[in-house]
């Protein structure tokens, strides 16, 4: 199934080919969770602070369905 992964801020370095205007489109077999998706994309889970699925707050264990859009954010500390 196809899902979209959008990496923000310093997480972008794990997907240098991510288009600027949208996320990475990934074809992954179900069952699929956020953490499995991030691992398949090469994103270390310990670098991820906030996860959103379809613009709603989610966790690593959330199961994903075809067409879901996952956004991942690192800890952002600067001020």
């Amino acid at each position: 199934m196809q899902v979209e992964l959008q990496l923000f801020a310093t997480l972008r370095k794990y997907a240098p080919d991510q288009p600027l205007d949208k996320g990475l489109v990934m074809n992954v077999e179900p069952p699929l969770t956020v953490s499995i998706l991030l691992e398949k994309a090469g994103v270390p889970l310990d670098k991820v602070k906030i996860i959103m699925v379809n613009n709603r707050h989610a966790g690593f264990d959330q199961e994903l369905a075809a067409g879901d859009r996952v956004a991942a954010f690192p800890p952002v500390a600067g001020g």
Binding site: K49, P75, A77
Partner: peptide, 11 residues
């Protein structure tokens, strides 16, 4: 509530 997912140290 927002930041509780995971607990990476500050970058």
């Amino acid at each position: 509530c927002l930041s509780g997912t995971g607990a990476p140290a500050d970058p």
